[in-house]
Computed example of a mutant assay.
Amino acid sequence: MKPPDDQAPLILIADDEPMIRLQLRRAMEQEGYRVAEAKNGEECLAAYLQFHPDIVLLDAIMPSMDGFTCCHQLQQLSTAQPVPVLMITGLEDKQSVDRAFAVGAVDYVTKPIHWAVLLQRVRRLIHQSHLYEQLALANQELQCLANLDGLTGVANRRRFDEYLNKEWRRLTREQRPLSLILCDIDFFKSYNDAYGHQAGDLCLQQVARTIAQTVKRPSDLVCRYGGEEFVVILPCTDAAGASHIAQEIQSQLRSLQLLHNQSSVDAFVTLSLGIATTIPDFQLSPKDLIRTADQALYAAKAGGRNRIEMLPVIVKD
């Protein structure tokens, strides 16, 4: 017998016959699996929520809640990849087999149990389940990479568009404020010309890191908007809150003292920032918020750079 360890796959056995449960437990434990038991459908659902097993061995015919109903409800409880359910049944007619697959079972064996077949199918289903989990994790990592700017590590323009639209819809329903801060590195072309593109890339990374470290709430999002521009999405933040964050970004960047001898406003790298705040509604769109933040940024640059400007969002006729 292989002793189960804490990392071994967990098998949930649901059967109303004590002798069948005992035989299944012994067979699974001999293979080194951990085992949990349920004697009916209700206990099976509760045990699934408590233990999150790797696979469920489910008797089709049980009192109160049969295996078909239980299997269907197990699929509803699964938040991600549904748990593999192997149905164990004395029914061999086509209708019962079709019904088992229709409610979400991925395989079945018939009674009396052919133990070698059962063990082989359990191994295969656990292996498949782990492969699906690895694939899901890999897809999540790819999705994260697809949403990041490769140079600075903050969110990219694609992620900005998705998140802004999502938060716009949510805050339209909740009637709560949404703010944008559009940030532009002052005289960045001159910086690149003077220090070289590698130094320019490093400057972009340091500015992005400074903004990201200043904007701390999980709901806020820092994005590279393009070139030397960054944008901060601030859900549930009014104009005063956005202004405070913008001032803090400037202060934190100033403390780095990144030399910029081609700047005509300071000896160090600085930012111009434009702020727009609104309570989203159906008369406006995210483009109105972006347009206003862009106008505020233009005003900050026209006013001498290294400053913060804020404008109200106005509905265009």
Rank of each mutant, 00 (worst) to 15 (best):
A102T: 10
A38Y: 03
A8E: 11
Q143D: 11
T110V: 01
K111Y: 05
S263L: 09
G32L: 06
Q250A: 12
Q252F: 03
A14G: 04
V117K: 07
E309I: 03
M28N: 06
H127G: 15
N40Q: 08
Y191C: 06
R121P: 07
Q213G: 04
L253C: 00
Q250G: 01
F230Y: 07
Q75Y: 10
E229L: 04
P112I: 07
D66F: 15
E162D: 05
R34C: 08
Q120R: 11
V269E: 11
Q140K: 13
M65T: 09
P9C: 00
V56G: 02
R176D: 02
E133F: 13
D193V: 01
N165R: 13
C203L: 03
L171H: 00
C236V: 04
Y33I: 02
T79Y: 04
I88M: 07
D107V: 12
R254M: 06
M87P: 02
N306D: 14
S272Y: 08
K216L: 15
T210D: 02
N261S: 11
T152G: 02
V85F: 02
G67I: 15
A38G: 00
R158M: 14
R224T: 01
D266I: 03
I233W: 10
E133M: 13
S272I: 09
Y108L: 09
P3D: 01
Q252N: 10
I181D: 14
H127V: 15
G303I: 05
I233S: 07
D16S: 09
A60T: 14
Q252P: 05
S263D: 05
A60Q: 12
F187H: 06
K316E: 15
L234M: 13
S96K: 14
K94F: 05
L125I: 12
F68Q: 14
N165G: 09
K39T: 02
R157H: 09
G153S: 12
C183A: 14
T237C: 15
R123D: 14
S96L: 13
A242I: 05
P9A: 00
E31C: 13
E309C: 06
L289P: 15
A138G: 15
K301E: 08
L24A: 06
L273I: 01
Q283V: 06
R121Y: 10
A136C: 02
A302W: 08
L151H: 13
Y33D: 03
Y132R: 12
S78M: 01
P312V: 10
I185H: 01
D201Y: 03
L135I: 15
G104N: 02
A293L: 09
P18T: 09
I233H: 05
L284I: 07
Q283H: 08
L289S: 04
S243M: 15
L119Q: 09
S263P: 04
G32I: 14
T172D: 01
L180V: 07
T110N: 03
L256P: 10
H197D: 05
A212M: 13
A246Q: 02
M310A: 06
L171V: 04
G90D: 00
H244E: 15
Q247W: 01
T79P: 15
D193Q: 11
R123P: 10
H244S: 04
T214E: 14
V85H: 02
K166P: 04
Y298V: 04
R176W: 00
Q252T: 00
R224C: 00
G303L: 05
